[in-house]
């Protein structure tokens, strides 16, 4: 039973991976970027658990810059995805411009809160 379930899981992941391979390259790049942000956030949380929460504002701004980046990247991914019919009226250039503007605001706030 156990062997069959692990085999099932392997089949599942293989199916998932082959389905994901069909994703356009620009979306894969965004996914990589999101992964990078989430991974950086996790490192900081582990570091805070080890060292303590002393410069708490620095910790918050570090983690929130990662989370904010990830959220904005996910928003961009939703808007530039061709298969998403909800935003088919929105030009990908417009979505990218929004993304850049939001990132500028985010990093401005983060820099203020970091020190």
């Amino acid at each position: 039973m156990a062997r069959s379930s692990s085999k099932d899981a392997q089949d599942l992941f293989r199916a998932l991976w082959s389905a994901y391979a069909a994703t356009p390259t620009n979306l894969k790049i965004i996914d990589l970027y999101v992964l990078f942000a989430v991974f950086t956030a996790l490192i900081q949380v582990v570091y805070m658990a080890l060292v303590g929460s002393f410069p708490f504002n620095s910790f918050l701004s570090g983690v929130l810059s990662c989370v904010g980046t990830a959220v904005l990247a996910v928003c961009l991914r939703i808007q530039v995805n061709k298969e998403n019919k909800e935003f088919k009226d929105l030009a990908p250039e417009r979505a990218f411009a929004d993304f850049v503007l939001c990132n500028l605001v985010l990093h401005l706030v983060i820099m203020n809160f970091l020190g």
Binding site: I43, Q44, Y47
Partner: peptide
């Protein structure tokens, strides 16, 4: 706080 600065 250097890791947080680095992350930002």
């Amino acid at each position: 706080a250097y890791p947080y600065y680095g992350a930002a």
